[in-house]
Design a protein around this nucleic acid. Structure first.
Lengths: 220, 220
DNA sequence: GGTTGCTACCGTGAAAACACCTTTTTTGAA
DNA sequence: TTCAAAAAAGGTGTTTTCACGGTAGCAACC
């Protein structure tokens, strides 16, 4: 026990992760225990660990096991570990989803190193750190609808539909692919418009891409 | 002159960029001269620089001035500076686009630090570094269609229109913003459909995002 | 049994997006 | 200065998208 904040990192972009490692090691009150490229490996590390980290930095878009799922599993098995979500996108989908999944804070990848240091220290001390990103509106939504299925909990159909929205298919064609009536597709769409506060298919596409539900490099 | 490879970095994700800085400083044959969040600032730095860097690491998706444009401008003004493109996406569009724009190599953000070191050293020495990413097929396309620049033949209006397509604005609203008739907007759209072999607005959005003409995180 | 809630589905009408074809205005090179 | 090309704008009609109100089936739960 040397008094340092023990940290674990999970991010599939190796350069980014190694870079953050270096940055953290420069802070004299922090040390990196584990550094892995996805959630599954992080869980495995924790399960086999002689010493648990105090804080985990979690990327949201990871292969194998994404940030949401990883956060839930960690909070389930090791509730004392504090979680800090890290992402490129500042969408409500991601922020609310990660906070609900148990993260104590949310940091963007364009943050400055001192902001990272600050966030980790606050999360270590208080269990949470809320930057200006987490607005009153988002906090309000978290508090007032704690059980309501939020955007982070879209069902399988909605996810599949969202992915198909990011193609040049018409809704009729999407209905065909999903083997449902075009009216049902209308329903999926209207439901997503409502849930995500969106008004057009273009909005759905942007959302699906920002949230990582659909990926840019999937359609060639 | 200390014999070190002089490097400049341009990437809008501060944590990533600072992390890469740290990684590079660990290599005893490299030093970071400039580190900026976008292409415009990099150009400004270079224009005012007492010492030019040997190699520039360029992110593709940056605000202000993206990787393609930045690469072209640098190669135009300072052809002796070697360029290494860095991106999360391994799409042909990006790879070919950056190589055409003058980059000597293409590296993914999930690369390991030694791969980064290796790439920089090779580019410094030979002017290029081709990982397994750059397949024979891509090289062939580069050679056989040397003039077919992917997005370069789009004019200012079309670029602005494409960006506005990636919002929830209707065409009528876009026409208003661009101060032209809705019919003119129809023209821009149909022209892009023709040029890019696209059939819907969704297709335009995907194209704009893939190509870096529009960015997911600049939604303002 | 009735109520609640959820999912799939339908009808209609309005708005937006798309296709095709024509006219006017601008531009710029011969 | 003239002519041709390109850009901007218009007319018209079809298809797709979106909004709204509603029905049918099914499971859970007092």
């Amino acid at each position: 026990m040397n008094g340092k904040i023990k940290i674990a990192l999970a991010d599939d972009h190796n350069l980014f992760r190694k870079g953050v490692e270096e940055i953290l090691e420069d802070f004299d009150n922090m040390e990196v225990l584990y550094s892995v490229p996805n959630g599954r490996e992080l869980i495995a590390k924790l399960a086999a660990a002689p010493v648990l980290p105090d804080v985990c930095l979690l990327d949201i878009n990871m292969p194998e096991l994404n940030g949401f799922e990883t956060a839930k599993m960690i909070k389930d098995k090791w509730p004392q570990i504090k979680l800090l979500a890290v992402s490129v996108y500042d969408t409500e989908f991601n922020i609310i989803g990660m906070l609900r999944a148990g993260a104590g804070g949310y940091l963007l990848k364009d943050a400055q190193p001192y902001a990272l240091k600050n966030a980790i220290e606050q999360i270590y001390k208080n269990g949470f750190h809320h930057s200006e990103l987490v607005t009153g509106r988002i906090l309000h939504q978290l508090i007032s609808h704690p059980n309501k299925t939020n955007s982070a909990e879209l069902n399988e159909k909605e996810l599949q539909f969202l992915k198909l929205c990011c193609t040049e298919m018409t809704y009729r064609e999407i209905a065909d692919v999903m083997s449902v009536s075009p009216r049902t597709i209308d329903g999926y769409r209207d439901q997503l418009f409502e849930k995500l506060n969106i008004k057009s298919r273009t909005g759905l596409v942007i959302y699906a891409l920002k949230s990582g539900i659909a990926l840019l490099d999937e359609h060639t």
